[in-house]
Design a protein around this nucleic acid. Structure first.
Lengths: 329, 329
DNA sequence: TTGAAAGCGATACCAT
DNA sequence: ATGGTATCGCTTTCAA
């Protein structure tokens, strides 16, 4: 059996109430008494039962975190940021992976919400209505998506696309393909919006290749469509798809950057490990996580200001080997 | 305020005790009563407070999970397996990332152990003594490491090395380098043990290049040592290092598989995405996780049999493009 | 079959 | 400054 507050009280020769105070509000206890309590607690290896505490304080000291797919290298980075920031703030985190399934997501939100002080939803798949109906319960922040007045941390997708297009046009490209992500993805819609807004004024023709699941195999499939589209450059919804593109293009003897330029989005670690390294729009992945936790903590202090809590982080094009000047043939 | 058992009791017109029974031990409640309770619970959207329940039952319904570094693509897969299996079994999981720091690890184990029914330690960095002293508390299982009588799930590292060496010797290689992982890594020691055991009888010379942190940059550094060692093939401690090797070797105009053969370990997703794809010893990553949870659940039922609980999973060489027949010059 | 009541471990209020 | 006590939400005897 674990050691409880009563054990400490007995050993220290005081009441449980005093033990509690000595440990949580030391200034309310006379120094010598406090010392005895602390000593006893230490000797017994006492540490308070958080569940019991939570029962009465209403705070659990836990945060919930829901991600769509840990196998996508983008998410572990975000999770790492969240976990690190939460630990600094004295919180532990519940992690759940939904396997990209929106119904699982809803179920998990409901289940977890009972045991946490707040939740971070990473790239949520749920439909807006559902999201709203659940959001009322516990404070929660969304990452990589904006819905109604739910607090969120997002990145400047439009700015990222602007940088990408500027880079390509500077290199001479005038016809650029976009291999899109899932139609339901907020990030994809934003990226597309950015591209559509930027392309005309940059004097480039945008060719939308279609919507794909954000996977390697999708990049493979997209590559053939890209080749048929007669473009000199392609922007992919994310790095993993860009890798698929690169792979299949090379299989068809079209090499980056000489024959075609390829840009990814995310800047996952492996983007810099391949040859040629992938030019990509970097997202501050860990910072997205840290920032999300910061927002959540602020919200938990002051639940009223929910509506205004919103952060947008910068993106940065990383120019690497997969893009190069247009070769006029 | 959340809906409690009392609310349900009131609406259903029964006592809280009956609500509890109807929901946890239905056979003890008359059907019509049970129906009313279930109906009320559903209408109110009731779900029991797990913390309160845990207080009395002594079981939290939570599992703790500690990993050294989510940024290493090996671990997210394991985590995914753990998380999936835990969810199936009705458990939620606490996740903590130690950033490869053994002292953080110890602290986290201690902190988490209070709030969970059991813990999974993934590739623990802690020294054995420390590990043992903490292990007494809650049931725990280790992944990728064996220490004393602590239950563990490991993989057949030796068998993996045997397959790798057999593959290379069949291709004609007779001098093989091993670019090792951290000296403190149990997996690294096992792999080295396997190589040393297998090499002589296979008629190959093993050249140990040194110990490295399991990162891309280490592979870069190791590559030059490999070239100086005059070998025709190299096995890396893991895939990420193998990628570094491939990268730097190519920079020095030594290309796999024509000029040298390279084998990694893990089979992370990106191993198959690069060109040439990486030949690697695949570990059943998700299964390691699932298996660890299974073991843990079994242990929680029957805490006595701790000593014997131990599983070793198979490894499988995936022959891909980064290895090829020896080119005699 | 159901209800009343006693805790689980910690906190917070009210006395002293 | 300290102790007694009610309470958080739920489970589990013990009676009825």
């Amino acid at each position: 059996m674990a050691v409880t507050i009563k054990d400490v009280a007995r050993v220290a020769g005081v009441s449980p109430a005093t033990v509690c105070r000595a440990l949580t509000t030391p200034e309310l206890v006379r120094a010598p008494t406090r010392a005895r309590v602390v000593q006893a607690a230490h000797d017994l290896g006492y540490s308070p039962n958080r569940a019991a505490r939570g029962l009465i304080t209403g705070r659990t000291g836990n945060l919930g975190l829901i991600v769509p797919d840990l196998a996508n290298p983008f998410f572990p980075s975000v999770v790492k940021g969240i976990q690190a920031r939460a630990r600094e703030a004295g919180y532990t985190v519940f992690l759940a992976d939904t396997d990209e399934d929106a119904s699982v997501e809803a179920e998990l939100v409901r289940a977890l919400s009972k045991q946490v002080d707040g939740m971070v939803l990473c790239s949520p798949r749920m439909i807006e209505d559902e999201l709203r109906s659940i959001a009322g319960d516990k404070p929660m922040v969304m990452l990589n998506r904006r819905v109604g007045r739910i607090p969120s941390v997002t990145v400047d997708n439009v700015g990222g696309m602007r940088q990408a297009v500027a880079h390509l046009t500077a290199l001479g490209h005038r016809r650029i393909a976009y291999a899109g992500g899932p139609r339901s993805s907020w990030s994809n819609r934003e990226r597309l919006r950015g591209l559509r807004a930027v392309a005309p004024s940059a004097g480039v023709q945008l060719v939308e290749i279609g919507n794909f699941t954000p996977q390697f195999a999708s990049g493979l499939a997209a590559a053939d469509l890209v080749l048929a589209a007669d473009v000199s450059a392609v922007i992919a919804y994310n790095d993993v798809m860009a890798l698929g593109l690169l792979n299949r293009l090379r299989a068809r003897s079209v090499n980056a950057p000489t024959d075609i330029s390829v840009i990814g989005i995310d800047d996952v670690a492996l983007a810099a490990m391949i040859d040629p390294p992938l030019t990509t729009v970097a997202l501050p992945k860990q910072q997205i996580g840290r920032c999300g936790v910061d927002l959540l903590l602020a919200l938990m202090e002051n639940p009223d200001r929910v509506g205004v809590a919103r952060r947008e982080l910068d993106t940065q094009l990383m120019v690497r080997g997969s893009t190069g000047p247009l070769c006029r043939t």
